[in-house]
Write a protein that binds this DNA or RNA. Structure first.
Lengths: 139, 139
DNA sequence: TGCTTGACTTGGACAATGTCCATTATAGGA
DNA sequence: TCCTATAATGGACATTGTCCAAGTCAAGCA
């Protein structure tokens, strides 16, 4: 059973076939699908599901705080179901592969007050960019 | 005189009116314009300049390493001429304001080998998100 | 179980951002 | 000044995302 689905049910979210399928598609570790990828996989299980519904559903999950939106490239946003384990991302600049990583330290502590310009900071995103082992060998 | 323009000239970049205008529009500190914003300002100085040229020119500057591409929201990419001073970004989640910031510490050092999955990491981007002073008072 | 109703889904139009290409113009060297 | 490789143009097209009016359905209730 999908953890994400469990959490959504637990919140009294009205359940429909479409929402269930989207939650199932999105569940797991190191999952960072675009909306269109989610749609493609959802269609495989529920052929009538529409693109608009996938966008709506993903948007609601993000609003509920059960899914994170990540923008690692300038292209389509990706959706990360691992919203309850703080983590950062490691991205391959060649193939686009994304891994969740857990750095030590507190990046927020590294930003002195003088560099905060009066902002109230609520969150820090760190993206490590490089080349993955598989792309490194395929010179 | 524009620092960015200087650097580009110094590289023997073929200079045209369009390229000069784009470089001038983009020069400065805390500048993070979208391609369309660059185009709008460029048109004010050189009415015939086309959108395609602005996109081409920005792309070349990025390739040359003289301008950075930053994607702080899921929308349009922004262009940052401050490519030779390592820095990170502080973003207001309400109004979208962006400031360059200079954290202490080395975020790369915080990522243990075991969390690198064999990647060769070349660069780390940190985005601090919060609310700017002006948005905080305009509750 | 079978209504009722408000919330959900649908498909298609539209918007925003970005890319491509054939044609025309031009910077900079000979 | 002339030539030529390189750049600019504009318009079509692609991708990603949003919106809306109409139809459909989940879930509470009799």
């Amino acid at each position: 059973m999908s953890d994400l689905l469990e959490r959504l049910r637990g919140r009294g979210w009205r359940m429909t076939a479409q929402r269930r399928v989207v939650a199932e598609v999105l569940d797991g570790d190191h999952v960072h699908l675009t909306a269109d990828e989610v749609h493609a996989r959802a269609v495989a299980r529920l052929p009538e599901i529409s693109r608009a519904t996938v966008y709506n559903t993903l948007g609601e999950m993000v609003t509920l705080g059960e899914v994170l939106e990540v923008a690692t490239d300038g292209r389509a946003k990706r959706y990360d179901p691992n919203a309850h384990r703080p983590h950062q991302h490691l991205v391959c600049g060649r193939c686009g592969a994304i891994r969740d990583v857990h750095p030590g330290g507190d990046p927020l502590a590294d930003l002195p007050d003088a560099e905060r310009f009066g902002f109230t900071i609520s969150n820090v995103e760190v993206t490590y960019r490089g080349i993955c082992p598989s792309c490194a060998t395929t010179a």
